[in-house]
């Protein structure tokens, strides 16, 4: 069982890291919320709706960040066959999906007062929507296989195809929106952001980042426990029942 040596060491490491990241997440989130909702000024153009940016932009950023983690995990699954890599990819995907969904909904809630419509086929929203579909496909692959190692490699292949596609999709969607839409009414994110908006944005970004690491570690631990549980059940029940029950997360 030397295969387990690595995960066990990882869990010990995770148990050392988690007591740091969890309070950091909570603390940064509290500070970030205070800065975003109370201590920062309203925008002269957008009024208070600019406060939505402080969660919308970090969500969109995390959506992409999680996909990069998923793709990197896929790469090391395929190339190095690292036993923790597929676990990491599977653990990161639902977090990424959640952030992608949040980016979409907060974008929509921001769009309504600003553009007067719940949904605008703006380049950023559209790209995030496609990213949402990519996550769904990745998770569907994980769900569709009975054999874990096969699922891991199939999902890894999809993640890599997806990550090569992300710039292509982004480019094509930008191309498409410049064709179909007059230039955006405003550009809220981007380098022209007002200095007073930077602290809440950066604190929220950091908070989301630490949130990711915390939940990511929890999910990896959960995955590893599921694998261990399966192995134990298989060892315990294999002589009696032909098909050990899979632990479906």
């Amino acid at each position: 069982m030397h295969w387990f040596a690595n995960p066990a060491r990882f869990i010990r490491l995770a148990d050392k890291i988690l007591p740091l990241t969890l309070p950091l997440t909570v603390g940064l989130l509290a500070v970030g919320l205070y800065l975003a909702l109370v201590a920062s000024p309203a925008d002269y153009q957008q009024g208070d709706t600019v406060r939505i940016m402080y969660i919308h932009v970090p969500s969109a950023y995390m959506a992409l960040f999680c996909y990069m983690i998923v793709a990197a995990a896929g790469f090391s699954t395929l190339v190095w066959r690292h036993p923790l890599a597929d676990v990491a990819g599977k653990a990161a995907a639902p977090i990424g999906l959640a952030f992608t969904g949040l980016a979409l909904v907060t974008g929509s809630l921001w769009g309504k007062p600003m553009w007067g419509a719940w949904w605008v086929w703006d380049a950023r929203l559209t790209s995030v929507l496609v990213l949402f579909f990519l996550y769904l496909g990745y998770m569907a692959i994980w769900g569709a296989f009975e054999d874990r190692s096969k699922a891991a490699r199939a999902a890894a292949i999809l993640a890599l195809v997806g990550v090569i596609n992300i710039p292509i999709i982004k480019f094509s969607v930008d191309w498409w929106t410049t064709l179909h839409q007059p230039a955006s009414l405003f550009r809220a994110d981007g380098p022209s952001i007002d200095p007073s908006m930077r602290p809440p944005l950066y604190v929220m970004l950091a908070a989301f980042q630490f949130y990711f690491f915390t939940v990511f570690l929890w999910r990896i631990k959960g995955e590893l426990a599921a694998i261990r549980l399966n192995a134990l059940r298989y060892a315990g029940e294999a002589p009696r029942s032909a098909s050990p029950k899979e632990e479906q997360p």
Binding site: V130, I141, L158, V161, I169, S172, V173
Partner: peptide
Amino acid sequence: LLVLPLYIPTLIF
């Protein structure tokens, strides 16, 4: 589910 998102660039151009 896998293929349609990847078709989007082709559709756009």
